[in-house]
Design a binder for these strands. Structure first.
Lengths: 120, 120
DNA sequence: ACTATATATGAACAAATGCTCATATGAAAG
DNA sequence: CTTTCATATGAGCATTTGTTCATATATAGT
């Protein structure tokens, strides 16, 4: 759509028109691509990944997570907000304590897929 | 191990010792967690994701990718180096042209898993 | 009301990131 | 050997990111 395409093309496209059409059909919507990148960005930090691995085992309060990971309460709380915003964790208040737990069944599957690549 | 754990712990751990042991057992090695985060960082950018979706359909040269995505040759080349370093794409030289293609069968599975979450 | 405890949050800052621009490299053709 | 075309790459820059520090909010106990 946009006319700001300033890509300095080579003489001719190497890919055939047929491929171009297949690509245009297979390429997801702009918004989906953006959301997908946002999702993977969340997983692209080892602190957040470690939090998720903790929550695989049990729901936990902010303080326990901080202690188990050897990080400050503030750092963990900030990251939990990030995870909350992206709907990967949910929370439950009990008095002064807030317990966090996994909100999405895909989390495990996504991390496992990534691990398969890392461990090969 | 490290003694720089300055986490201001709450009065007592809420999680039971049993859970702590399960966590210590289930938590992957430090290095694996780092590599996993590095991997997801790669997927955490919509330009790279779009490149990968293109390569699902066919191998392509840098210029074709730039043109199809409406971006500069330089930007695409930089991102291809990133993808190459993390072993997600491979390349094949043919004269002046360099054709890139997917190097890893997990790429599709990882993106599909993410899409499942995004599209729910 | 006052205090203590658990968590949340805003500002600040260093580090990482993605693009642009200019230029270098590599290969084919003249 | 010089030119041309496709690609690679380094420097620079604006933006984003993850943490720290200080402080605010929320809840329970006295």
């Amino acid at each position: 759509m946009g006319e700001q395409n300033t890509a300095p093309a080579c003489e001719f496209m190497h890919v055939h028109q047929e491929i171009v059409e297949k690509v245009n059909q297979a390429m997801p919507q702009e918004e989906q691509l953006f959301d997908l990148a946002e999702l993977f960005k969340i997983f692209g930090d080892s602190t957040r990944i470690r939090i998720l691995y903790l929550l695989f085992e049990a729901e936990m309060c902010v303080c326990d997570i901080a202690q188990l990971l050897g990080m400050t309460q503030s750092a963990i709380s900030h990251q939990l907000q990030v995870l909350k915003k992206s709907k990967l964790v949910k929370y439950r208040r009990e008095g002064k304590t807030v317990f966090y737990s996994l909100a999405d069944s895909h989390v495990r599957a996504i991390l496992d897929q990534g691990m398969e690549h890392v461990c090969e």
